[in-house]
Amino acid sequence: MLLQDLKPEVEKIINQPDTDKDSKLKLICEVLERNVDYYNWVGFYFKNGDKNELKLGPYVGEPTDHTIIPFGKGICGQVAESNANFVVPDVKAQDNYIACSITVKAEIVIPIFVNGENIGQIDIDSNTINPFTKEDEDFLEFVCAQVATIL
């Protein structure tokens, strides 16, 4: 399935009036993981109050021990500080990578901004080396912009 074809599905989830925020986030994770072959773990991390750390939100995929990630640590922690997308084609080549599973080969993390502030991110792990393209980045920026409207 083309990523562009998933945009209406994401918008439909965001606009469900009787669904709470966490349920919408979980549904988005499920749609992405189910429809994109190389999205093997899909989840959200959010700033944990006033602390300089991220807290795991809704996700789909293998359970992770990384429920709290300090800013600067791993790919997610780096995105929390840099406010920039981070695409890792091969996690083995990345010095500051936190291994979640031995099957993970690549990762993409896109920040979520609300009123110009980085309040969280979508994190996607892939069991395929170098699967992410500019199209993935653009699509996930769209997803994050949609998510920002409910936060």
Rank of each mutant, 00 (worst) to 15 (best):
E107P: 06
V104D: 10
C76I: 03
D18W: 10
L27E: 15
V42G: 02
C144S: 14
V147G: 08
S82Y: 03
Y59H: 12
N40Q: 08
G72W: 10
D18Q: 13
I108G: 00
V87H: 00
D123A: 06
L140N: 09
N52E: 15
T67C: 00
A84Q: 15
T149C: 11
P111Q: 09
I28H: 08
G116E: 12
V91Q: 01
E11Q: 15
N52V: 00
D50Q: 11
C29P: 06
K105N: 10
Q146K: 15
G57L: 07
R34I: 00
T19H: 00
L151D: 04
F46Y: 13
Q121S: 13
I124F: 03
Q94V: 01
D138W: 06
V60P: 02
I98Q: 08
V147P: 03
D20M: 06
I68Q: 10
E117P: 01
E53T: 04
L3W: 05
Q4R: 13
Y45T: 02
L54Y: 09
D125H: 05
A84L: 14
D37F: 07
V87E: 06
N40L: 06
G57W: 06
N48W: 07
A84S: 12
D125C: 07
Q121L: 14
V114M: 07
D37N: 12
N127E: 13
G120Y: 13
F86M: 10
E117M: 10
V36L: 04
K51S: 09
Q78I: 02
S82F: 05
I75Q: 04
S126T: 08
Q16W: 02
D37Q: 11
L32V: 00
F139M: 08
C100V: 04
I122G: 00
P131W: 12
R34M: 11
I13G: 01
P89K: 14
D136G: 12
A145H: 13
